[in-house]
Design a binder for these strands. Sequence first.
DNA 1: AGAATGGTGGACCGGGCGGTCAATAACTTT
DNA 2: AAAGTTATTGACCGCCCGGTCCACCATTCT
Lengths: 201, 201
Amino acid sequence: MARPRTFDEAQVLRAVRDQFWNKGYAATSMDDLMQATGLGKGSLYGAFGDKHQLFLKVFDAYCVNSLESVKKTLEGPDAGALERLRQYMLGVATASAAPTNRRGCLLARGTSELAAQDAHVADRALETFRGLEAAFVRCLEQARAHGDLAAHADPPKLGAMLLGLMRGLEAVGKAGMDEACLRGMVETAFEHLPVPAKRRR
Amino acid sequence: MARPRTFDEAQVLRAVRDQFWNKGYAATSMDDLMQATGLGKGSLYGAFGDKHQLFLKVFDAYCVNSLESVKKTLEGPDAGALERLRQYMLGVATASAAPTNRRGCLLARGTSELAAQDAHVADRALETFRGLEAAFVRCLEQARAHGDLAAHADPPKLGAMLLGLMRGLEAVGKAGMDEACLRGMVETAFEHLPVPAKRRR
DNA sequence: AGAATGGTGGACCGGGCGGTCAATAACTTT
DNA sequence: AAAGTTATTGACCGCCCGGTCCACCATTCT
């Protein structure tokens, strides 16, 4: 009954996301977005609304995808739970330090730039952090059940602490701190987790 | 031999800093800075150069002041070193969560927004992080010497880890996470520091 | 007093900003 | 094939951006 769209919405949103990711919100112009997507201004406005709505859309999607991906990564049997979590965080350390990945994390960048002024961004970010925390806690509970963590360990507290550390990796990584340091932080944190009494060295 | 300046340079730089601090670099216009400082454009350009130089100036000053202030806070006898560090980090947690302090930390904001494109910002940020880390390590060494930390504890590693956590506090605080959570992260980290054998419970 | 020096304020500039709109194209329905 | 509907394009809008420039002013030196 009408002319169909000639672009792939998901693909366009990916291009928009990358643009915001690379340059930040305020520093990205609509012309940048036009060039990145190959679409005219009218199409962008018609399909997604203004710049701010466009940002919210890709920001939300980024948060949902990140969280889902982490959940999937950490999913698995009790046996390897602690090691999965450790490997995941080491991966974050490496990614945060990689000079190729200098853009950092869109969640961090968007929160830093907009959360103070935009409640939607703050809410979504907090929700995502809570989700990550919950995934960490689940992993730690599995680890405790399997005996990789002391019975007296407190997964909720440890999970929150590891979440804090993880966001810190991202922050110091953006300043250019080297990979060895970032991975060292993770390893130090894990070395100090409470070990079951039987295995205490 | 010429007309003297009618403004206090330090005061002007403070106003400029607050503006960048509140709105971010890209979102702050020269008009904002004129209004914040009360100076005309000519004076600003004549005294400090363009917007970017102005930012670098206040960013550098912020880094130097922050670092110095932390060093002074953590300074003291071996006896209370660990507690001083703990209290300092709890203070960061509280400050990061305070809704009044929604602007966060200029070092974090500036790094997040500009470090990827501006080597000067990245360098200065990294230098500051290293300085903070060193101050933490010094505190931990004092604590170990005094017997508040196990002899086998590794201050450099622990200091790096605590730095990571501290930057994470700032990051999750900006999303609006509550004070109790942030303080809990710090307390959890400190509860898991290696305690001297004599005092192990 | 007058010249020299440098600070001050604001008019001014070209360009890029976010956003609108009307003409046109591509499709479905009747 | 005609009518109806929506996507697309890019010209266009007013505004504000960062930055320049210059007329004017306050001070000091001679």
